[in-house]
Write a protein that binds this DNA or RNA. Structure first.
Lengths: 253, 253
DNA sequence: TGTACATCAGTGAACGCGCGTTCACTGATGTAC
DNA sequence: TGTACATCAGTGAACGCGCGTTCACTGATGTAC
């Protein structure tokens, strides 16, 4: 049974604690590599132990079981994606809403193409027999949608988010859901724009998933970056982002 | 080595041939059930053989190996989805473009929610170590996008597809891709609308994947049908479908 | 209509593999007095 | 500063499992003459 590393981390870590933390880091790193190479279903504690240069049972000192390692890898991947998205967004001025939107979408795509198997773990078919513990993964798992919603909400508060036209009315039960989300995230955007934001969110990942998972077919699109840039621009329109007042010199990545 | 069932199927099938075809059907049916229950990674020839009431090596009379069974199941699933989409679309008058668009999207969603594991096989993370043979799966695998594009092209030819506004210009390399697609599918829609159609396509599957794969979180949306109906309406707008002339009495499913 | 032969479905044993997990154990590293 | 004890990392063997695939075989079903 693995020892609980540090409940109240008051004192500085002892050498043993630091060695232990480093080993856990190694395990996660090796697990990450296995994930990237062979996919989640093929992730095995024995293989990780081999790479760690240790007998298979030794891993159980650090990780309760295979599920737990999967959870660690899930959190690790969500956080890496979240970090990269946050950094890409923060690199542009706060008032450049369209620029930040582009940066967010491009950052997700870049990470997904670089880490297809980990992207698949997060946004692909569920791993059979594994259910992520919500209390540990919800936080890291919602970072991208939080970043997107904060961006759109900021644009709305700045008067730079146009009201949606078209045929889409918000029905009553959906309005209740949206109100709950708005309250939970501290947003100001009205229903129509919030619903559009949700669509933009799923659409972004839909476009990326098709590219990463190879749905487009072998040689349908020779210029996938162009296609994605086009999609991003259309999604910015769909979200209601007003292009007129964007700082000059911005261009899609 | 499995015998090739029928290259030139001239004569009526012999009893043996019919028994053989029935057994293959049984294998696909059982494989389908295993897929639905445990996912593609857990699909095993031994398990199928057990369910078939036969020793494991006997399956090799009918199926070359595990890969081949996966391919059969892939084709089977693509065709079932394609059949249901086609039927849903054909149930509405040809001129009711918005209605048919709704029917198409709803049919995909319905099938996906009913068959989450098979949906995951088609549109989720790739099965590790498996590559679908393009020459056998491309046909069935493109039925939905063909149906969607035929629908949008019909609307365009009928003057019922509005030119896209917004910031999205089509860059040159992308235009070349689009021209190839247009020629290959015999379409008339211009670049802007074609690119929008591709975005609508990926967005539709993005929305469905999030719902099927549980990305929304446990209780974020109590009314997922409402959300999807809203998304479909927004996607109809995005595609450029003109709502004004739709037959009365149409409503989203 | 009957016989000799070819085809085919299914059997059963086997090979070699990797997996998750448990358990009693040996030494090394830390801690309390 | 030294000693006795507790903690912990890692070992090695084992249990029981399921998998894909091959192979020589037995019988039943079909086919040619």
């Amino acid at each position: 049974m693995p020892q609980n590393p540090s409940l109240p981390s008051t004192k500085p870590p002892t050498p043993r604690e630091r060695a232990r933390a480093r080993t856990i880091e190694d395990i996660v790193r090796l697990g990450r590599e296995h994930l990237a190479l062979h996919g989640a279903a093929a992730l095995s504690l024995r293989a990780v132990a081999r790479d760690l240069g240790v007998v298979s049972s030794a891993v159980y000192r650090y990780v309760e079981n295979r599920e737990e390692l999967l959870t660690l890898l899930l959190i690790d991947a969500y956080n890496e994606l979240g970090d990269e998205v946050d950094a890409a967004v923060a690199a542009l001025p706060e008032a450049d809403f369209s620029g930040r939107f582009n940066a967010l979408g491009s950052a997700v795509r870049r990470w997904a193409l670089r880490e297809p198997a980990r992207y698949g773990l997060l946004f692909g078919s569920p791993v059979p027999g594994y259910r992520a513990p919500a209390e540990r993964t919800t936080g890291p798992g919602t970072r991208v949608i939080y970043a997107l919603m904060a961006l759109l909400d900021g644009a709305y508060r700045a008067g730079r988010l146009a009201a949606p036209g078209g045929r889409a009315a918000v029905a009553v039960p959906l309005a209740a859901d949206l109100e709950r989300i708005r309250a939970g995230m501290g947003l100001a955007v009205p229903d129509g724009l919030l619903a559009r934001g949700a669509l933009v969110w799923t659409s972004l990942f839909g476009a990326i998933s098709f590219e990463v998972f190879g749905q487009y077919g072998a040689d349908t699109f020779a210029a996938p970056e162009e296609l994605f840039a086009h999609h991003l621009a259309a999604l910015a329109d769909l979200a209601g982002l007003d292009p007129s007042a964007d700082p000059a010199g911005r261009r899609p990545e």
